[in-house]
Design a protein around this nucleic acid. Structure first.
Length: 572
RNA sequence: CGGGGUGUAGCUCAGCCUGGUAGAGCACUACGUUCGGGACGUAGGUGUCGCAGGUUCAAAUCCUGUCACCCCGACCA
């Protein structure tokens, strides 16, 4: 493409609407434009990358034996009533009526539609297994769309759904999808990690997420430094500490702690480390009562773990201030387990391992020192309710945990019969008996991959695309071509030659100053840069620089194809 | 949904407190100079000051309402 014929300019100033790097760079480089909150248009430069990502996904899904389909964005409410999600999905599901007042939804995902197809088409175990996928626009009415296309309301997703007669077959396809995802993310050129996940609202038993690693990622990932254990922090088990607890040595003593509410304030005021304090959180129980949750002062509550405990309301809800007052006789900041009146009291393993610790006294401006579990507190139940932290022993039994940040770009589930049973998707098995099919589902956030790629690969000058998903592989910068017919001639010829050789070239033939061209090339993030200028022409040289390099190098112009090919990552 | 903030030229923003003819830089158009790291000069076009109502001789500015957008918390690819 000739830049002189491309109408969209890069912009120097960062649009005020953007907060995260990828969003800023996508706007500045003319990749996307916002239409409304959470709704984005993809401009030509961005679409090229998007389509490269889609192509990689398509090739690997096909290679893994999946069959491509396209299902409607709009879906009749009846299907959602059948699965029960018309009630359960909540306001994130965009609902609308057609002119006949019939209810429809804008599809946030397609389990219902695919299950409907499967139950109509598939009658025998001999037609199984099968795996359908599509690459299609989804709509989720997010509470708060943000970070550009990272969390948009409308986005492109690759979703796949497999059907099986038995568990073994489901596990085989799940594994095949795991391998396909590994190939897909490897081929995009991104650094990623597969992790154990909480299966969340979609349901099912087994699930894993694929994360692109980036310091700005929204998710925390815990992994062992000695084996391949890796899990989303919300799903990473925090093991009970060893050695076991020391015996009580101090007496329970009430001390005045005026105004000290947070652990930080209490620990500073009493001159004890946060790890020798506990915090007591009150949440609503599923029977209308109040449940107490205790974690060590330096730890964080893990809501996902906590809401799975018997007696805890799901989703987790903190008790309101006046319920706290009624329950504990005090206010936020001074609650403690001693004499606390709750339905259940769950104590995290590491809090339970403490002796002689500091706890709230259930009295304004007072805490206890020298608190001990058996002696001072009754009814404590041990549980894992905290986030794992760096340095914890790995749940795999080998090594300690490290924590990095990631952006979730893929998620694979074994769904089981969550949809097939309520929607009566059954086949006849070998014995002629009707059995509900088992399902798996496998998603990839296609548009999110593009944003994640930028979060992971950029510098202060702009984007640094990995070769496989760069909008163009080579940027050809011709300097002063409006004055120098020689430069124009050489650059034009080079452009034709490289393009004919199948290399995607962005040719900057604009009448612009060198600084502008270099700056734009760097902002756009084209990985390989060739410069044509009077300087090198006489000597028959061209100048090359990779986007990550700090120095340019010269090479004989005659070798250009061979030279470039040796530097471009070839697609597998 | 709760809390905070912002709406003025295509973009970034000033002006608002203290009411009195709507501004700067960038971008855009023309010409000239310049030309290996975001040049300069001259000339030029650009506005429903988010919208509606109110106060006032007079509203971008004060008041009320409303809409949109952004940021922080509970959900997800």
């Amino acid at each position: 493409m000739r830049l002189s014929q491309y109408p969209i300019n890069c912009v120097k100033e960062t649009p005020a609407e953007a907060e995260v790097v990828s969003h800023k760079l996508m706007l500045r480089a003319g990749i996307i434009r916002r239409l409304a909150s959470g709704l984005y248009s993809w401009l030509p430069m961005g679409l090229r990358t998007l389509q490269k990502v889609e192509r990689i996904i398509r090739e690997e899904m096909n290679r893994a034996g999946a069959l491509e389909v396209v299902m409607p964005v709009f879906q009749p409410a009846e299907l959602w009533e059948e699965s029960g999600r018309w009630e359960k999905y909540g306001p994130e599901l965009l609902r609308m009526k057609d002119r006949h007042k019939r209810d429809f939804v804008a599809g946030p995902t397609h389990e219902e539609v695919i299950t409907d197809i499967a139950r109509r088409e598939i009658k025998s175990y001999r037609q199984l297994p099968v795996n359908f996928y599509q690459i299609q626009t989804k709509f989720r009415d997010e509470v708060r769309p943000r970070f550009g296309v990272m969390r948009a309301r409308e986005f492109i997703m690759k979703d796949a759904y497999s059907f099986h007669a038995d568990e073994i077959s489901l596990k085989q396809t799940y594994k095949a999808m795991y391998d396909a995802y590994t190939r897909i993310f490897t081929r995009t050129g991104l650094t990623f990690r597969a992790v154990k996940a909480d299966s969340g609202a979609i349901g099912g038993d087994v699930s894993q997420e694929f994360h692109v690693l980036a310091s700005s990622g929204e998710d925390a990932i815990a992994f062992s430094d000695q084996d391949d254990y890796a899990a989303n922090l919300e799903a990473a088990a925090a093991l009970p500490p060893t050695p076991a607890r020391q015996p009580a040595s101090k007496a329970l003593q009430k001390v005045a702690t005026p105004g000290a509410r947070t652990i930080e304030e209490v620990s500073r005021f009493l001159q004890v480390p946060a790890s020798s304090c506990i915090k007591t959180l009150l949440v609503e129980g599923d029977d209308g009562g109040i449940v107490g949750l205790v974690v060590r002062g330096d730890h964080e509550l893990n809501a996902i773990k906590a809401q799975k405990l018997p007696g805890v309301a799901q989703p987790l809800r903190m008790a309101s201030a006046d319920r706290i007052a009624r329950q504990s006789g005090t206010e936020l900041g001074f609650i403690g387990p001693v004499g606390l009146n709750v339905v259940r009291l769950y104590v995290d393993h590491s809090a339970l391992a403490l002796a002689d610790f500091v706890s709230g006294a259930n009295e304004k401006d007072a805490h206890f020192t020298g608190t001990n579990w058996e002696r001072d507190v009754s009814g404590a139940v041990a549980a894992d309710i905290r986030n794992a932290v760096e340095g914890d022993p790995s749940p795999s039994g080998r090594g300690t945990l490290k924590i990095v940040r990631g952006i979730e770009v893929g998620h694979i589930f074994q769904l089981g019969r969550k949809y097939s049973t309520p929607m009566k998707a059954a086949v006849l098995d070998e014995s002629g008996k009707e059995v509900d099919m088992l399902m798996g589902c496998y998603g990839i956030g296609v548009t999110r991959i593009v944003a994640a790629a930028i979060e992971q690969n950029h510098d202060e000058r702009g984007i640094i695309w990995p070769d496989p998903i760069a909008p163009f592989t080579v940027v050809l910068v011709a300097l002063n071509l409006q004055k120098s017919p020689r430069v124009r001639e050489v650059a034009d010829r080079l452009y034709e030659e490289l393009t004919a050789a199948g290399i995607e070239v962005l040719y900057d033939d604009r009448d612009a100053r060198p600084g502008v061209k270099f700056a734009d090339a760097e902002l756009l993030g084209i990985p390989h840069r060739l410069v044509v200028a009077d300087r090198g022409i006489e000597a028959g040289k061209l100048e090359y620089r990779h986007r990550r390099d700090t120095e340019s190098q010269e090479f004989p112009a005659a070798d250009v194809l061979q030279f470039l090919r040796s530097r471009i990552d070839t697609p597998r």
